[in-house]
Write a protein that binds this DNA or RNA. Structure first.
Lengths: 201, 201
DNA sequence: CAAACCACTTGACACCATGTCAATTGATAT
DNA sequence: ATATCAATTGACATGGTGTCAAGTGGTTTG
């Protein structure tokens, strides 16, 4: 399978990822990538028919390297709805930094680039399924605050966990990753969990 | 003052705004704008030295036309911290749709376009000052939940009110404007207001 | 009345990134 | 020996921004 993939192809994917993480996504030209790999610009087109296809492939590559699937399974050892909520927010808060550069690159071209949008939507659908799983666990425990319908709660939960919110809090406001995780856990529990008591500070 | 501004300049600004609102921000070329106004592409450059300057000027134009300043004052008739929170979220929730197209356009070029980024940052600083005002009113009333420091609360409040969150909830999840306002008010109260009791639904 | 000025026009062009095409090289497999 | 394959080189089309120079038509001013 993976031995089937050409070495150069992998080098291109790795270089693309690295440049995007470093360069805030934009400003990464095909020629930059080629130069980083040590091949000609045209050689990149031998492996990926255009910039979009390269970006989508990079998304999949990153998923694979980071082991998204495995990590998505891990947090499910939690049992109660509240524990699942905490574990999922923690998982996601730790995962975002690893994919942030690529996420930013995809978002930057989201409006103009259909395939990039598709790749991004796939990713977001995966997150949403984690949110659905969490809210359903709260419903199962009869712990979802009564003012929320299931579907609205999923929408809101998913929105709160957006990469943009993580970006605003950590990159713009200067929060640490743990601060993000703790505050987000606290906010979501106080909003969604019936009878949840905020801890006294 | 405003009589000083050339008619053509105003036409360009109005056309730019209208095209950006309509066209999701991207895809609006200098030639599109010129055509909409009924002048040559080069004539646009007689009024704005480049695309960026035009966008920044459009931002100011929209602020003026929408009366941002006046509307920011209005919601301050509210007295208690909780009332201010509600009024501010309502004001902002009603204001976003009017500036959404332009906001999207500015965000789309945020990474690559320094002046657009500056214009956007100015706007966001204004929102942030509304958030600060609100949280300070809660602090004054001794109503801020003890787990939050003032500064963290401001950061979080401001993040929650981002245009991106509004976009995800209304454009992606399909929420109505009122749904956004009510849920956001409820969320922020249950997070920030000490001893706030969620209503039984 | 003529000169200067003004907003605008026309057309050409440089720049830069993406993507295409054709001809060529050099190594490996048959 | 030869076919194949990855990669190279160089040229070129496209599309949008921004620049430049020369010209036009109407209004103001000496």
């Amino acid at each position: 399978m993976s031995s089937n993939e050409s070495e150069t192809r992998k080098k291109i994917l790795a270089a693309t990822w690295q440049l995007m993480e470093a360069g805030r996504g934009h400003e990464v030209r095909m020629s930059d990538i080629a130069e980083a790999v040590g091949i000609s610009r045209q050689a990149v087109y031998l492996h990926f028919s255009n910039r979009t296809e390269l970006m989508v492939a990079t998304t999949h590559y990153v998923d694979e390297v980071c082991g998204l699937d495995k990590r998505l399974l891990e947090y499910r050892s939690a049992t109660s709805g509240v524990e699942i909520l905490e574990a999922f927010v923690e998982f996601w808060g730790n995962y975002i930094p690893e994919i942030y550069g690529l996420a930013k690159a995809l978002l930057a071209v989201y409006e103009t680039d259909e395939a990039a949008a598709t790749a991004w939507n796939d990713r977001m659908a995966a997150v949403r399924s984690g949110c659905r799983n969490t809210i359903d666990a709260l419903v199962r425990d009869e712990k979802l605050a009564p003012e929320w319908s299931r579907d609205e709660a999923i929408d809101f939960f998913w929105t709160m966990l957006s990469v943009q919110n993580w970006e605003l809090l950590t990159k713009v406001c200067g929060w640490s990753g743990n601060q993000y995780i703790e505050r987000m856990q606290s906010l979501l529990k106080s909003s969604f969990v019936k009878g949840f008591q905020k801890k006294d500070g």
